[in-house]
Computed example of a mutant assay.
Amino acid sequence: MRILAAMSGGVDSAVAAARAADAGHDVVGVHLALSRAGGTLRTGSRGCCTIEDAMDARRAADRLGIPFYVWDFSERFRDDVIDDFIAEYRAGRTPNPCMRCNEKIKFAALLERALELGFDAVCTGHYAILVDGPEGRELHRASDEAKDQSYVLGVLTAPQLAHTYFPLGSTPSKALVRAEAAERGLTVAQKPDSHDICFIPDGDTRGWLAEKVGTAHGDIIDRDGAVVGSHGGAHGYTVGQRRGLQLGVPASDGKPRFVLEVRPVSNTVVVGPKEALATAEISGSRHSWAGRAPADAEFFCHVQIRAHAEPAPASAVVREGTVTVRPETPFDGVAPGQTAVLYDGTRVIGQFTVDRTVSAVPIAG
């Protein structure tokens, strides 16, 4: 096969490209330039789209003896990921930019161009397993549970899975990948993993949003509607947040309070006790299926609401274009904008963006 290997500049994508070449595929490496500031420098292990990353990817491709290119996807990344991120926070939602990047950039824009150029598949260093089942290709969890990335790949559809290649999915541990990179003479063998949001390299999401959205002082209220503090912009808060609230009125029981709801229209943040974060139901209309759609409108599954959350047993209902999930035990705080990924054992069924949550402890107002 002709394989286009997406090379981020990290060890995983470099070893994935190497394995694709070892398997006898015709491999071409490509690094995606996603930043509008071409000279952006890396800060520690934050980010994955800096000038150093592009140089690391080129060196890895040279070592592997494969052609290498840098493609400028910065405009598409700005429109589909960064602008979406800002708009979601403005609307009082908590988005996952990695999900949007996979959905809109790596497995949409990149894959579309790859197919146009005659490639058969896009190869990445994600930890997930593809299985060719009787009803088409399936997406499964990786062998290494600690590195499993099937959650952030839950946005992939059947046509995208048909042209995707994940060489690392069955590798038992990341340590083995690093050891292999060292044996191959790849300089990225011990490079730290990237983390946090790549376009906010200093990790200060609230400060970054304040620059983009501006500040607008508003009230922090409790579940009864009493004002207990103030804030500089509701967009800087998310459901489940405890730190940085700066409440002027302590809780009567002396216990910490958490963000329960963000109301962008009134620029109000609602806080309350931890037990009030319990969520009995979530639903959303923006959904997709990773392969075949569920055979029944109602089915049992396991649901994961964050990249590193434990999957929870739940019942799901698909009705009039909306997916509704009710966990057997309430979720511990879910914010609109989060992504819920549905599993059948290790297989990813699909995903939806949470539009509505129902608290197990009703909130006044």
Rank of each mutant, 00 (worst) to 15 (best):
A179M: 09
T187A: 11
R113Q: 15
R184G: 00
N102C: 13
Y151E: 06
G136H: 07
E135P: 01
A87H: 11
F119L: 03
V131C: 15
R137D: 03
L117F: 10
I197V: 15
C98R: 01
W208R: 01
D196Q: 09
C198F: 15
L168C: 00
Q190W: 12
H195L: 11
D144E: 07
I197K: 05
I86D: 01
T124Q: 15
V188T: 13
A158C: 14
L139N: 07
D193V: 01
D120I: 06
I200N: 07
A142L: 01
T187H: 15
P159D: 02
D144K: 02
S143F: 04
E103Y: 14
L115N: 06
D144G: 02
H126K: 07
T164D: 02
I86V: 15
A179H: 09
A189F: 10
V131S: 13
I200P: 10
L156H: 04
G203V: 03
L110G: 08
E180R: 04
V188R: 14
W208S: 10
L117I: 00
W208K: 06
R178Q: 13
Q160E: 15
E138V: 09
E116N: 08
I105M: 09
A181C: 08
T164H: 03
D120C: 12
A162D: 14
A162L: 04
K104C: 13
I129S: 05
A87M: 11
C198P: 08
V122L: 14
E135H: 15
P159W: 07
K147D: 03
S170G: 03
E180P: 01
F119T: 00
G125L: 08
V131M: 13
A210W: 00
G118M: 05
I129Q: 12
D202F: 02
K174C: 01
I197N: 02
H163D: 04
P159I: 07
G118K: 06
